[in-house]
């Protein structure tokens, strides 16, 4: 498994493998995005993308059915969309509806179309759809009073090509210590608040909706208060149950949470550079599931 040293000359904030595990995108405070080809142990830098005017916080690959497309968000308040066509990368769209840092960007489940969800320190969240004729129809809503730090789509439970009346949800985490679950209605282009989940006592730094479609849906939220909370509920219940991942606090601020694509293993990233893995036992308690050696 490769290790790429000195990929950037300033802090890297996000690194994401594409669907096939062949391409790695990294973004950094040096205002560039780098695309690497990775194969077994070796790696090759294929492109450096400039265009953002501030540190770039996150990147996200679109589903391959839309082409080789990457979204990036930055402190400059913009979401840029990049596309590779016959070997050449170019910026194909700018989404600039936010008046402050855009802290997270994520493509919707591909069944919904080419849709992205952006969360910004201007307190708003925006959903924008890239239609075939290139027009974008952004829906912008006020989500958290002082700023939104992260937003994550719920997985689509609809079978491939099924009718699309199934409710589309996403979760947001804010600088008001709150976690909110929203319903997005693509016909009426509207977003309504479904639940407000209280529990954290400091900034919610990341929220992650588990992509595994199980009997229960799971949301992991991590915060500046050094705790991780797992919110879960079955489709039929209306109340989310709240479980602290572990009772004592983590040694440092927890910055990111990521669910494995199968097996529902949760990876937490702490400010102490530690990555811890967790899985649910049969009684619904969460236990460590291996360690990542640095």
């Amino acid at each position: 498994m490769p290790t790429i040293t000195n990929a950037h000359n300033d802090l890297i904030h996000d690194a994401v493998l594409d669907y096939y595990g062949k391409r790695l995108a990294t973004c950094s405070s040096d205002k560039t995005i780098k695309i690497f080809e990775v194969e077994g142990e070796n790696h090759k830098l294929v492109e450096t993308l400039s265009g953002h005017e501030g540190p770039i916080w996150r990147v996200d690959w679109a589903h391959p059915k839309f082409g080789t497309i990457l979204a990036s968000c930055s402190y400059d308040g913009k979401v840029l969309i990049w596309k590779e066509e016959n070997g050449k990368w170019a910026q194909i769209a700018v989404h600039a509806v936010h008046s402050a840092s855009v802290n997270s960007v994520q493509w919707a489940p591909h069944e919904y179309g080419a849709l992205i969800l952006a969360a910004s320190s201007d307190g708003k969240v925006s959903v924008v759809e890239f239609k075939d004729n290139g027009t974008t129809a952004p829906v912008v809503i006020e989500a958290h009073a002082i700023g939104v730090n992260a937003a994550s789509w719920a997985p689509s439970v609809m079978p491939e090509g099924g009718v699309s009346n199934q409710t589309r949800r996403f979760v947001t985490g804010g600088a008001d210590n709150l976690v909110k679950v929203w319903k997005y209605n693509s016909e009426s282009q509207s977003v309504t608040l479904e639940d407000t989940l209280e529990g954290h006592t400091d900034w919610v730094r990341d929220v992650a909706w588990s992509p595994s479609v199980l009997l229960r849906c799971y949301i992991a939220t991590v915060s500046q208060d050094r705790t991780c909370i797992i919110w879960s509920k079955e489709e039929k219940d209306d109340k989310w149950t709240k479980t602290l991942l572990q009772n004592e606090k983590f040694p440092d601020v927890l910055w990111r949470a990521s669910w494995s694509l199968s097996g529902n293993i949760l990876a937490l990233s702490g400010g102490d550079n530690k990555v811890t893995l967790w899985k649910e036992d049969l009684e619904g308690k969460w236990e460590p599931a291996g360690e990542v050696q640095e």
Binding site: M1, P2, T3, I4, T5, N6, A7, H8, N9, D10, L11, I12, H13, D14, A15, V16, L17, Y19, Y20, G21, L24, T26, V38, V253, W255, R256, S258, W259, S260, L261, I265, A267, L268, S269, G270, G271, N273, K274, V275, V292, E294
Partner: peptide
């Protein structure tokens, strides 16, 4: 932070401790 990200095939992408590199 390592900003660990799961990928297909049980791979985990992490930013290295000095913040300038990436390990898969």
């Amino acid at each position: 932070s390592p900003a660990a990200h799961w990928a297909f095939g049980g791979k985990l992408v992490c930013i290295t401790a000095n913040g300038l590199g990436v390990s898969i």
